[in-house]
Computed example of a mutant assay.
Amino acid sequence: MDTLRMTISLRPQRTSAPAGSSVGGDASGSTGQRPTKRSTNGLRARAALRLLRRRVLVMIPTTILVSLGIFAVAAASPFDPLTAHLGDRYQSATQAQRDAVTQAYDLDQNWLQAWWNWWADILHGDLGWSSTKSQTVAHVISERLPFTLGMSLAALISAAAVAIVLGAVIGMRRGGLFDRACTALAAMLAATPPFVVSLVLVSVFAVGLGWLPTSGARRPGDDYSVDGLLTHGVLPYLALTVSMIPWLLLTMRSAVVDAAASDAVHAARARGIGGWTLLRGHVAPVSVLPTLALLGTRLPELIAGAAIVETVFGWPGLAQALVDSAVALDFSLLAGLGVGSTILVLIGSALSDAAAVWIDPRIGLSA
């Protein structure tokens, strides 16, 4: 009887509801109700925006410190900028000529003063003058950036698409022949430097088979054209894409294997869910997060790989300009390219993390 009386006395508390709420859990928007899809998307967007705002605040001091480091390291370089400026005339140049060149390009200026003057010019909208290219830095970057940016973005998108799709397939079929072959090939390519991949492609498709040109972005004497860019860009595009696939592929495969072994996926299988529906609805949304995070952390490698690939294939991007500016201590161009690359890496990393937060706000990225 005591137990019965307790049950009866508790029944009104269990069935009563606060004023203004709906019994049964319908989406009325009141307190205690399940959030709607629109409110969930709003929470995701706000979480991603908060992360982006924090990253912008971190980006400012990081950029300043990187620029300071670029000038300091360039000043400690053993290269003599006067040799680069005079070239073949260095040995025959008189002391007066050397002094004139030194004064014209401020080669005797302290690196800290050069760094301060560079930032002062930047704040006034002047990127400086490139002594190695005899052009403004803004013109050098605007002329070469489309080649580097187009190649890098195309390779990044292709590598991510291949890695995500192929990694999902072999991860769901772990241990099979196809999985072992792809994993072994990815491990081998991950240990292969981009310039080796580039040389192999040149040896096979350009020298051996003669299907594609070896370097440049156009034939000598021709103007740039879509056909010329596509033809000359095939090999550097393949080299850069192949160099980026392995780590993304192995990461995606590992994430899919872990997700497939989770309790949620086992419960979905028990309910009769399988195949493409299981992969799309339960495995892929969780597995893609590590791949997105890796994209942000591998952006420096993408830029370094693009510089190597451009040098091997003579692609008219920013790589050769960066090398020339470093050898000649062309502070304006070197700092512009270095700081610009840093900003691109920071922006790319922030966007990849913001995308991960938008997909799943529970991961709680804060910096």
Score class of each variant (00 low, 15 high):
272 G>V: 03
39 S>V: 14
228 G>A: 10
292 L>E: 04
52 L>P: 06
211 W>S: 02
302 L>G: 07
55 R>P: 02
13 Q>W: 12
333 L>S: 02
25 G>I: 04
24 G>T: 00
250 L>V: 11
108 D>S: 10
13 Q>L: 12
246 P>K: 00
275 G>F: 08
58 V>W: 15
121 D>G: 11
361 P>K: 09
57 L>R: 11
129 W>Q: 15
139 H>D: 13
278 L>D: 08
68 L>K: 05
101 V>E: 14
83 T>K: 14
359 I>A: 13
104 A>R: 15
326 A>R: 01
63 T>N: 04
329 L>W: 06
219 R>S: 04
346 L>T: 12
116 W>E: 08
197 V>D: 09
332 S>R: 12
194 P>G: 06
237 Y>V: 00
124 H>I: 00
65 L>D: 13
119 W>Y: 04
68 L>T: 04
239 A>T: 00
219 R>E: 01
34 R>T: 13
160 A>I: 03
169 V>I: 15
63 T>R: 08
292 L>T: 02
100 A>E: 15
60 I>R: 03
111 W>E: 03
98 R>M: 14
111 W>S: 00
57 L>C: 05
274 G>Y: 15
152 S>K: 03
297 T>C: 08
287 S>P: 02
46 R>A: 09
263 D>S: 10
278 L>P: 06
151 M>W: 01
248 L>A: 06
121 D>T: 10
178 F>L: 15
252 M>I: 00
88 D>L: 07
330 D>I: 00
195 F>W: 12
359 I>H: 13
68 L>Q: 10
92 S>H: 13
364 G>W: 15
41 N>V: 07
250 L>E: 09
235 L>Q: 06
27 A>L: 14
251 T>L: 02
42 G>K: 01
79 F>G: 01
46 R>G: 06
3 T>P: 03
175 G>D: 08
93 A>T: 07
60 I>L: 14
121 D>P: 07
142 S>E: 13
317 G>R: 00
44 R>S: 14
6 M>P: 00
94 T>V: 11
213 P>W: 10
252 M>S: 04
46 R>K: 15
235 L>A: 05
296 G>T: 01
195 F>N: 01
103 Q>I: 00
1 M>Q: 05
66 V>I: 09
209 L>Q: 13
351 L>H: 05
41 N>T: 10
262 S>N: 11
140 V>N: 09
190 A>T: 06
39 S>L: 11
57 L>M: 15
217 A>K: 00
139 H>S: 10
136 T>D: 06
311 T>D: 07
207 V>S: 14
328 A>F: 08
306 A>H: 06
100 A>S: 14
28 S>C: 03
18 P>K: 13
154 A>P: 05
35 P>L: 11
346 L>A: 14
218 R>M: 02
294 L>G: 03
365 L>E: 10
217 A>F: 01
11 R>H: 15
135 Q>V: 00
261 A>G: 13
34 R>F: 07
55 R>Y: 13
